[in-house]
Simulated scan of single mutants.
Amino acid sequence: MRVTIVSRIYRPEPAAASIYLGAVADELCAQGAEVDVLTAAPPHGSVVEPRGERVRTFPVLRDANGYVRGYLPYLSFDIPLAFRLLFIRRPDVVLMEPPPTTGFVVRVICALRRIPYVYDAADIWSDAAQLEPVSSVVISVLRSMERFGLRGAAHVVTISRGVLDRLRALGVDGPATVTGFGADTREFPPTIAAPQQLFVYAGSYSPAHGAEILIDAFARFLVDHPGFTLRFIGNGSERPTVEERAEALGVSAHVEYLDPVPPSELLPHLAAAAASLATIKPSAVYEYSYASKAFSSLAVGCPVLFAGPGPTATLLEEANREVRAGIACGYEADEIAAAMRRLADDRPSVPERLALGEWTAREHSMSTVVRRVVDVLRVAARGRR
């Protein structure tokens, strides 16, 4: 089987999508498939190291944070993609990652070449965009493009029943499979380090996350825990908002901002932290989404403090029946601050952290997820033949 993966982001660029797509490529190669990856050239200083797949890169525009995000960066990837996908050796099936502009290009080119494609819909981009300061016209265009890409897919894979229900509500009624989501336990194994007075937020922070609430909570927490640091590792459009809030509350000296790092460099931060933090801002359009960064933290053995609605809270409730996985609370500063105090004052032991990592590997390993995705790709490829 010959598979082409299309994504503006791929390893070594540190992101959940990169880790996930890399794991899919690894599983495909392990099963004897030939894999091509059409992606963007990595950020300056990063080196692509294929593990059996052929990674074909192309220069793209990046935003001020070095991320392929925004209309011009998307177009700088999608316009060349049309020609790259048109002339690449014909695959049996394509696996594509959003944004919707990429879905539009993939549907058009795959229709011309009669190639089935599988759309990875981890969330609904046009829903998330409603939390950005953009016009209703932009939302309407984005919604139309996203629906166009989804409806043309031979199959859609998604991470939760909530996302699938939302897809059905939007009129996407083709074949779809809930594959779940998990941690790549090869990249994020259970790790122990000397404990530090530290909380870590690792990953993107966009308006859908509402991470600025963490600053309000942390300021209240610092009153009786003045030695702690809140460390953001990643990037996002909300960073200026977070920085301004920290400055306004006088806690900037206790808040750090690091650029995205690969898993090997993230592990020591998570292993030393009292907990990792994750948020989803309450919103009628985005409450079905996972905070996917929680899975990697749990795999390392780092408890998670999650604030907000959605299935991440259910995940922690499930885990806490067997191991010490962390705390889920409401999206409210006092509740978050109280959870921070509990996690800072009663940290899991080394055996408890190891048990958390082992539980995550057993119950939420990405290897199980990617095998389901590969099964879907095989079915789609057989349909073409």
Rank of each mutant, 00 (worst) to 15 (best):
L75E: 07
V323M: 03
L298T: 07
R382F: 03
D120T: 01
T314S: 14
V48W: 10
L164K: 14
D346R: 10
R362Y: 01
L75G: 09
V68Q: 11
V323T: 09
I9W: 04
M366R: 15
R231D: 09
A273F: 07
P100D: 05
A294L: 03
P12T: 11
E332T: 00
N320C: 09
E358R: 15
Y71I: 13
R231Q: 09
D26G: 02
R372M: 11
A217Y: 03
F58N: 01
N320I: 05
T191H: 12
E363A: 14
N65E: 14
T101H: 04
G70P: 14
G383A: 13
L270N: 04
D78P: 02
T185P: 00
G326N: 12
V370Y: 07
I115M: 08
A64I: 06
V118I: 08
F87V: 13
A355V: 05
I192C: 12
A273I: 13
Y286C: 12
G310H: 05
L266H: 06
A129R: 15
T314R: 13
E132L: 14
Y119K: 03
I79A: 15
F87H: 13
L112R: 11
P311D: 10
L258R: 15
L377D: 03
L86P: 07
P133E: 14
R151F: 02
I215Y: 06
A219E: 07
A307I: 01
H209C: 00
R384K: 13
I19L: 13
D334I: 00
F221Q: 06
T102W: 02
N65Q: 15
V369P: 12
F87M: 04
P189R: 11
L277N: 05
G52D: 08
A361Y: 03
T102S: 15
V350G: 01
G236N: 04
A319M: 14
P260Q: 11
I213R: 00
R245Q: 14
R342I: 04
G234A: 03
M366G: 02
M366C: 01
L354V: 15
Y201N: 07
H364E: 11
L343T: 06
R342G: 13
V200Y: 10
R220Y: 00
G330N: 00
R2V: 02
G152V: 09
L377W: 06
T4I: 11
L164N: 04
P42R: 08
E244K: 14
